[in-house]
């Protein structure tokens, strides 16, 4: 049981690190938003799953499940608000120069 918990915790750390690298590497606001929001959601979910497995079948697991469900609603909404604001302000998305069609 313990190694499954360790695996999920490691997965959380892995996704967190790559989300931050993506945040630094990508060119404009939309692509940075993509990297950070997606990887942060996955890393948090991995940590939640690890906590649930560690805790077993107790009332605390129900609470963690509720927090995870709440995060499933709020996570995309925050990224949507940032993206929508940039879109309304008229920030032009970055494009690759040579397009092979």
């Amino acid at each position: 049981m313990m190694w499954i918990v360790q695996f999920f915790m490691g997965l959380g750390i892995f996704f967190g690190i790559f989300g931050n690298i993506g945040l630094l590497r990508f060119p404009d606001i939309y692509t940075r938003l993509q990297a950070s929001s997606k990887c942060s959601t996955t890393s948090l979910f991995s940590i939640f799953i690890a906590c649930m497995l560690l805790e077993g079948f107790t009332p605390m697991t129900g609470r963690i499940l509720l927090i995870a469900l709440f995060f499933l609603v709020t996570g995309p909404v925050t990224s949507h608000i940032i993206g929508r604001h940039a879109w309304e302000r008229g920030v032009i998305p970055w494009k690759r120069k040579k397009v092979k069609d």
Binding site: F15, F18, R25, F26, T31, Q34, A35, K38, C39, P93
Partner: peptide, 18 residues
Amino acid sequence: ASFKMVFSVMKGNINPRI
């Protein structure tokens, strides 16, 4: 999706569109 995202962060070849 996150694994795909990690790969595109590593390689850096993206083609964003609206």
